[in-house]
Design a binder for these strands. Structure first.
Lengths: 259, 259
DNA sequence: TAGTGGTCTAGACCACCGG
DNA sequence: CGGTGGTCTAGACCACTAA
């Protein structure tokens, strides 16, 4: 009588009566085999039929487990050949920068967004370029604001959206002053995509003054453009982040974040 | 006799005899409904049973299709309630920076990595901190190199790995001078995870000279630490990228990259 | 209680790969 | 050709939600 694989404590690897799904148990088991090196990169996993028979479960359940590992990038499948342990890719560079609100919350600080200025402006050459328009009479809603935590200024943001609705500028802008929200409220079309470019620069006199840092101190500059369904720019912002308070972090590999 | 949904040209939405998998056809069909606005954010999709009956396919196939959309972030499921169209999240900040080799290739340039120095060094306080060790006699392999394209220097990298194998330093290092590769070749344990921190700074005199930029010009500074399976640092590097030649870009939304 | 998505089964046929 | 993963079926039972 088969009873499936058991670990060193003679404890069954898969407990069919557990509330934890079988496919999840199997995925974690295989994950452990890989992370402890009992399955080396490039090595083949047992075939789906073998795993199904060994643990007395359906092949579809095995496939669901393997699907989890594929999604996690730990294994890859080749039709007609088998399933293999991936080589760890540690040189991808995908950085995450938490947005302002989360950033503040994570640090347990009290954040504040102060609007320095909010008014209607007419098109100038820079705006006509950024929004890819030629109509000089276009009006834009212009926001200028400072983000601070614990009374220390962290970022300085300037935002523009095409002003078509003629809606008054409300206090509620303070609740969510993200560019996409401003665009949603004041523009005719919905934002559906966004592009951000992050560059490094040095603080201008104005930026240094607002952020309370020395002139020419290094800063991150992020430009965001928000597009509607027709790929037309409907919002643009330029944000300056203090270089001494912001950084981007990237984790790579199979147990990066836990360490 | 049921024949399933048909589009405006009376063409069946799902062709069961196609070589294209049914679940894929259904996923693309639902995707189109969402992107054209016929299914609005927050709105519920037809239930899995409804879709199965409408297209005369198995519920498991419907689930596979929906699984694709979930993975793409376009819909989310709630047990006991239904499946709903996601709100587009345009304010995530996940930046990608192509690695040096791809970067060069993408631009159609001829890249070159020049090793300025490669030698064995003993532990100093900075290295003992970075590698979290206390043994002063530890030896490190130290690489110093410049990355250039079209004879223009772009980045300056300093890399350290624990030197345990006593292997000679070979020309082959030039082929793949990534930190993970150096660690693989010269260290006892395999790299399994990596952490990178990107900050903004200004060029020192040495960096400015090597990168041919003014002193105090803004630069990206990336520190990478590579860990083995026991979460011990086995490699560390500090790379300086010219601020006038590098930027990070992030796309967000459902049809961002195509535009 | 009725309806939803989540899990699981025991088959089936197929496309692809290697010997 | 046998073995592999890829797709698909027609059921089943469950946990959860809402009326």
């Amino acid at each position: 009588m088969k009873t499936g694989a058991r670990d060193v404590q003679n404890k069954p690897v898969i407990d069919k009566k557990s509330v934890i799904p079988i496919y999840y148990q199997l995925a974690k088991y295989l994950e452990e085999l890989i992370q402890t090196g009992r399955l080396q990169p490039g090595e083949a996993l047992p075939t789906e039929m073998e795993l199904a028979q060994q643990f007395e479960i359906s092949r579809m359940t095995v496939r669901k487990a393997i699907g989890e590992l594929v999604a996690a990038g730990m294994v890859y499948t080749q039709q007609g050949k088998g399933t293999f342990v991936s080589m760890p890719k540690l040189d991808n560079v995908v950085f995450e920068l938490d947005n302002y609100n989360q950033e503040i919350k994570d640090r347990g600080l009290t954040g504040k967004a102060t609007i320095l200025e909010a008014r209607i402006v007419r098109a100038n050459q820079q705006l006509m370029d950024k929004f890819k328009i030629t109509d000089k009479s276009t009006r834009f809603l212009y926001f200028r604001m400072v983000l601070a935590a614990e009374d220390e200024p962290l970022a300085y943001e300037r935002k523009y959206t095409i002003y078509t609705k003629r809606k008054p500028i409300l206090e509620s802008e303070l609740q969510d002053s993200s560019l996409t929200n401003l665009v949603s409220v004041h523009s005719d079309s919905m934002p559906v995509s966004s592009k951000k470019v992050l560059q490094v620069s040095v603080a201008t006199k104005e930026e240094a003054s607002i952020l309370q840092i020395p002139i020419k101190a290094p800063v991150f500059v992020m430009e965001q453009t928000v597009y509607n369904a027709e790929h037309q720019p409907i919002g643009w912002s330029k944000s300056v982040y203090r270089g001494d308070r912001y950084q981007l972090t990237a984790y790579d590999g199979w147990h990066g974040k836990e360490g």
